[in-house]
Nucleic acid binder design. Structure first.
Lengths: 357, 357
DNA sequence: CTGTTAGCGCATTCAT
DNA sequence: ATGAATGCGCTAACAG
């Protein structure tokens, strides 16, 4: 590579073929490995300034970097934590990740990010891999897995914190949106704005607890109101045929309520961004760019295109969720013995053209 | 914020249930560690069926999982590779990641995903961390860093493969979009469709080679055509004031060319999705939902909302880029001595309403 | 076929 | 204040 221009003093030491080890440094500094180790761990009180300087110099000269693996092996902690993400394609996940990273940074942890890409088999594989690398804990945004898959996690196993979703049979800390409050918030908003036919659209529950909770809160809010009509549509985004069947049902409802020029009475409440996108695409294709004058769309999650499309959303405190999750996990790693805790954060309603009247 | 690097904090280790070690298994199976090791490595030819069965049973009974860290320490390879992503918020990155993951899976590698979140300091930190964990190689989607930061990488250092962008002064394999061809493809498309005032909008080049290449190809294509007018607008998305200044300039151009009912003559060519989104948001705010009748928008990158907004795009072969990068890296890890290779993949033009006439 | 031995790079007693 | 010795969990010679 030789990026050093000829004639320039070679400030960086020549890349050692074999990385320097603690032994090399000890020899170079004319001392024992113990002192080097002490230096590395900041135990300066046990080092004469003179020795300390020599060590410093030797390290610089050799471009020495302690091997984390070896350190981990020795002390039984490697500062690694696993972050299992169900679907990075969902902006929600990326945002949560930002919080996770920030917290890890602050706590001296290194997140090992694993992406299950919505495949249960991947999830299983990564979880197994994580335990094999002896991560000190895991943050799990689980797919529809049974507790079975998470066996290494939880009691006696690796400390774990759940994000967004519970896992049946697994008792662990969990942090996520207050789904009940959020769904209620959205529903009330739609009712207030005068929509009297509201469809809650959600992916199959499988084992995703948050989805179920959102639907339940929606149902409850609709029941409380009494007059308006609420229905639920389950859309399996992985099955295009099924999706189209569901959408046709929706179309029927919308068409039948066409108020001939009056404000729309039908509102769609998407349980999350992927669903909202699918709905928007369909409505756009069917009714053209003016679909908003026919139906209102509200979604939990606030993807970047929401502003562009002008749909109302309930933004999740994603960053905080991630940050909080790491904090919980850190406490567990440090040995906190509390019972499983829940941290439910509120969502924020962002009203846009879609439901503004 | 404590920036204590992982591995350094001298905290008391917790006391989790101790996982079984190879020694435990050996004892349980009434044999030596060597045989267990052989079993783990699939050297069955050196194990009597009887012993093999006993080992199998012991492993199951103890729920034993070999410690990768220890294995890595011993054999000098830990099957870990680093994947440094500049900005996970960009769908491009997530898609590349999918390819990376698939390839890793296929090659028995474990990707350690690091997200620099557009901060050079983060990038530096993660790179340092990766070498500290002794990853066998890194795939780098670099920010505007100098070769300096990547010193551990490259000749003599950790094998590396660049994605999307070159790093000044660093000679390494690189895989990404054929920027020249892509920008030319887009430009020609716009010209064919009759747009005669084309703005290429791009973020500051900093050290991102792909941005510069795209602009250059655009300029070239415009020069070749001759008649039409091409301009470049640099938009620093991180500086809102500057962004608005730039957008105002754009507005002026659009307004002055208002064809009073005729088809739009102005087209915007966004160098990537983030830029395209910013443009769309602005146009939507300024001209209303009908902005498409005033300006055309074409973008490199094909984010999910492109279909919704109906803008034309040039989709990058993201998955392949990621997959290929891992393959390159794997070859390097296995000792390939070839000179630095380039793999430029073609983009695919997806024509949508925005430029369809 | 199978077990013994000797480290991998480092942190930790325990002496000095 | 400093260093020698021991072992973390595992693999790789090297014997039997």
């Amino acid at each position: 590579m030789s990026t050093t221009p000829p004639g320039t003093p070679p400030n960086p030491p020549p890349a050692p073929t074999r990385r320097a080890t603690i032994t090399d440094v000890a020899r170079e500094a004319g001392t024992g490995k113990t002192s080097i180790s002490r230096y590395l761990n900041g135990e300066f009180s046990a080092l004469s300034p003179e020795l300390r300087a020599r060590i410093e110099a030797a390290i610089a000269r050799l471009d020495y970097q302690p091997n984390q693996m070896a350190r981990g092996l020795k002390r039984g902690r490697n500062r690694l934590i696993g972050m299992l993400v169900a679907d990075l394609t969902n902006p929600y996940s990326v945002e949560v990740l930002q919080g996770v990273e920030a917290a890890c940074h602050a706590l001296g942890l290194m997140p090992l990010i694993c992406h299950a890409a919505n495949e249960v088999e991947m999830e299983r594989r990564y979880l197994q891999l994580l335990t094999t690398y002896r991560v000190e804990g895991v943050i799990v945004n689980a797919l529809g897995v049974r507790e079975e898959t998470l066996r290494p996690v939880g009691d006696g196993g690796i400390p774990a914190v759940l994000v967004d979703r519970r896992v049946e049979g697994l008792i662990a800390d969990m942090v996520g949106l207050d789904n009940g409050a959020a769904a209620e918030l959205g529903t009330r908003h739609l009712l207030e704005r005068g929509f009297d036919h509201i469809w809650f659209v959600v992916q199959p529950f499988e084992r995703v607890s948050s989805r179920r909770q959102r639907v339940e809160a929606f149902d409850r809010a609709m029941r409380d109101e009494g007059r308006a009509r609420g229905r639920t549509l389950v859309l399996d985004l992985a099955d295009e045929t099924a999706v189209e069947r569901g959408l046709a049902e929706l179309d029927g409802a919308i068409d039948s309520l066409d108020g001939a020029g009056t404000a729309p009475r039908v509102a769609l409440f998407a349980a999350n961004a992927p669903v909202a996108l699918r709905l928007a695409l369909h409505l756009n294709a069917r009714y053209g760019a003016h679909w908003q004058s026919r139906v209102a769309l509200l979604s939990i999650d606030d993807p970047d295109w929401a502003e562009l499309a002008g749909i109302t959303t309930i933004r999740q405190p994603t960053y905080d969720i991630g940050y909080r999750a790491v904090e919980f996990l850190h406490e567990r790693i440090e040995g906190a013995l509390t019972g499983a805790r829940d941290c439910l954060l509120p969502g924020e309603l962002i009203v846009r053209a879609s439901t503004a009247r």
